[in-house]
């Protein structure tokens, strides 16, 4: 069933905005509504074309009016976010994530026209610890519930979404648990982290990182909206990079920090406005996280175009990250040594 009227939350951010743009370009969809608390940046707004921007706070009951008057039949909840806006952003972020979702779901429940709900969640709901299995499938839960931050928000959001699914069994609910996004255009904590010239890591740990190209993320959200594919799906690129390997591929230098000093260093980077890592993301740097995407390929019918490694390389070349050690220098050195050796023979 192709939706007629689609409402997208979080359109002033990368995913929501580009998703609204894709829907606006689809002639089968009659109307596209984009909701956010602040207007999208100008270039994003231009891309969105005929999509209408509604400046509204999803924490406010007003959202219910928007949904019912516009006869919205499909809601794409893409505003749950990990990156707080500004230094005091964390409490606001939590409110937007959790209270916003509650209000939005309440509005959806009220409106009989709503037929489909697509939720952008995160694989952070699985947590990250040494006692976890190497690869998470959709039926697994976290070993210990994250006590704060984005991961906890996501767990709570998913809880409310499940509740909504029980109360409105007629609505197709798709929950997508994304791994970390990467790509030349998207701006996340991780893209800023790898752009640092010297990348701090936790001494003695090497996380397994699974990434998803932002274009694949958009394609998955689009597919979930245009087709009826209810369920919970892990979404991530094929293959795994080790954190140290990713740093080498980006041509950065790795700075191992002892565990005890990690909060201090994290605090420094936060106050310097370089990278804002929350404690649960710090844990991610210790253990990493890999999810199983069999369901995505078989039931959801989508295979990511970029593998983790390709997505990361696309990010590195797209951002124009200059490696500190030029690969050609390394190759020249290798050749030089071999030539010298050949002379000694």
């Amino acid at each position: 069933m192709t939706p007629k009227v689609v409402l997208v939350t979080g359109v002033s951010r990368f995913l929501g905005g580009h998703l609204a743009a894709r829907f606006a370009a689809n002639p089968d969809i009659e109307r596209v509504l984009g909701v956010d608390t602040e207007p999208p940046p100008r270039d994003l707004l231009r891309r969105m074309g005929r999509a209408e921007f509604v400046r509204a706070d999803i924490r406010n009951p007003l959202i219910s009016k928007v949904i019912s008057t516009a006869n919205v039949d499909t809601v794409v909840h893409a505003s749950v976010t990990a990156s707080p806006a500004g230094p005091t952003g964390r409490t606001v972020m939590k409110e937007m994530n959790v209270i916003g979702t509650m209000q939005l779901l309440a509005a959806c429940q009220k409106s009989p026209k709503v037929q489909k709900l697509v939720v952008k969640s995160t694989s952070a709901v699985y947590g990250s610890s040494s006692r976890d299995p190497a690869v998470f499938t959709e039926d697994m839960g976290p070993k210990d519930l994250p006590s704060s931050g984005y991961a906890k928000d996501a767990v709570e959001v998913e809880g409310y979404v499940r509740g909504f699914g029980r109360r409105r069994p007629d609505v197709n609910v798709t929950t997508l648990r994304f791994t970390n996004f990467i790509g030349p255009r998207i701006d996340t904590v991780l893209t800023r982290y790898f752009a640092l010239p010297v990348v701090p890591t936790v001494l003695g740990y090497d996380a397994r990182v699974q990434l998803l190209h932002s274009e694949d993320a958009l394609a998955v959200l689009e597919r979930a909206t245009l087709h009826d594919l209810p369920g919970v799906f892990n979404v991530g690129g094929d293959g795994v990079l080790l954190l140290s390997q990713a740093i080498r591929r980006a041509g950065r230098l790795n700075l191992p920090v002892p565990s005890a000093a990690v909060p201090t260093v994290g605090g420094f980077f936060r106050s310097a406005r370089l990278v804002d890592f929350s404690p649960d993301q710090m844990r991610f740097l210790n253990w990493g996280r890999v999810v199983d995407t069999t369901l995505l390929k078989k039931d959801f019918g989508f295979t990511p175009r970029w593998t983790t490694q390709q997505a990361f390389d696309d990010y590195v070349s797209g951002r124009g990250l200059k490696p500190l050690i030029d690969p050609e220098t390394v190759e020249a050195a290798e050749r030089g040594i071999l030539d010298a050796a050949a002379r000694f023979r």
């Binding site: 690869v135 397994r208 795994v240 080790l242 390997q245 080498r248 591929r249 690969p327 290798e334 040594i337």
Partner: peptide, 21 residues
Amino acid sequence: TDLLSFARRRIAGDYQIDEFG
């Protein structure tokens, strides 16, 4: 030759890891 090509692969991060690491 093997040693140098190994060193180059390690510096460039040009190797494969499976999902278990």
